[in-house]
């Protein structure tokens, strides 16, 4: 296991290097520079002022020097300062917002897996019945629904029409003076719609995957053996089949992370949640290079970590990998 872990972590080094290289080139090879964006609106800016700005941001140096400077700082967790008027360090900005996005996505992930597993089992054990067909239709629609549209519809029904749920932010006005229970209840109400929207997209795919994984396991010889022994169907499904059917889902957990982080741009913008997705969207709209680069790198690193966790848990769960 130790060698596996070391090997798995060593692979990360070239990948991280590649992530920084792609992030840097995506931003710097695109036509236009941050300075151009800042002065484009102002025709009075002289050439000297422009050069001064370029020098200030280090844009007058050759590209490879800029890259090395950036990576050098990155290693020390210094992502530079935001171009926005507050001029705060990007790391601080991300630190404020990352926990919100992460916790929202973790809740969404738990909900997703919590629902997808039973749905997948139901579909697999009732294969080709109306139940299975109904689930399949639900899955196909789930694949096709644009998340931002779903968010709008939920907002319309539960926020505007029925007025059951608040439609933006994390807290109500004056929530600081609420008691703890009230405070948490208020936050839960704010979180309900974003979490539903965040989990809905992948729920369809995940339950489909669970179904085929379960069907695959049920077809194996040891399940026939278990049945032949006279075990009840319940024991066969939940004790013998389920554990093996769950294995591939661990890998899927790793794969679902970039989608979740990427998706947060949409629902955080719609529901006005002050998370990383919203910060990224604002950064992109105001062409705040350090923020955009910082979040790109952090988003990719989170994916790497998620994949690492998934691979290690897979190895822990499956002895064939651990000792292979």
């Amino acid at each position: 296991m130790a060698t596996y872990l070391v090997k798995r972590i060593l692979i990360l080094i070239p990948l991280m290097f590649g992530i920084t290289l792609i992030t840097f080139s995506v931003i710097h090879l695109a036509p236009g520079e941050p300075v151009e964006m800042q002065v484009a609106m102002n025709p009075k800016v002289t050439k000297e002022a422009r050069d001064r700005l370029r020098k200030f941001y280090g844009l007058d140096k050759p590209l490879h020097v800029q890259y090395l400077n950036w990576v050098g700082k990155l290693v020390r967790l210094d992502l530079g300062r935001s171009f926005s008027p507050d001029n705060r360090p990007v790391v601080d900005k991300i630190k404020e917002r990352l926990p919100i996005t992460l916790s929202l996505n973790i809740i969404a992930l738990l909900l997703e897996f919590g629902l997808a597993v039973p749905i997948g089992i139901l579909a697999a054990t009732h294969r080709d019945t109306w139940l299975d067909k109904g689930i399949t239709i639900f899955v196909f629609i789930g694949f096709a629904v644009p998340t931002f549209w779903l968010a709008l519809l939920l907002m319309y029904f539960f926020g505007v029409k029925l007025n059951w749920l608040p439609i933006s932010g994390l807290h109500s006005l004056g929530s600081d003076s609420f008691g703890l229970v009230h405070y948490l209840w208020d936050m839960a109400k704010h979180l309900l719609m974003p979490v539903l929207v965040a989990s809905f997209g992948s729920l369809a795919g995940l339950s489909r995957y669970m179904r085929s994984s379960m069907l695959n396991v049920i077809g194996q010889d040891y399940i026939t053996t278990a049945r032949a022994k006279g075990l009840s169907e319940r024991v066969v499904i939940y004790k013998h089949a389920l554990r093996n059917a769950l294995l591939p889902l661990i890998t899927l957990f790793g794969f679902s992370i970039p989608g979740l982080i990427g998706g947060s741009v949409i629902f955080e913008t719609i529901y006005a949640i002050p998370g990383m997705g919203q910060l990224f969207y604002q950064g992109v709209m105001s062409r705040d290079y350090p923020v955009v680069m910082g979040i790109l790198v952090i988003g990719a690193m989170l994916t790497l970590i998620g994949n690492l966790i998934a691979d290690v848990s897979y190895a822990l769960a499956d002895p064939r990998i651990r000792h292979g």
Binding site: L15, V265, V284, I295
Partner: peptide
């Protein structure tokens, strides 16, 4: 490496 990036972030950027 390309698969590490949340695709939507990369496109937006």
């Amino acid at each position: 490496i390309m698969l590490c990036f949340p695709a939507f972030f990369l496109i937006l950027a």
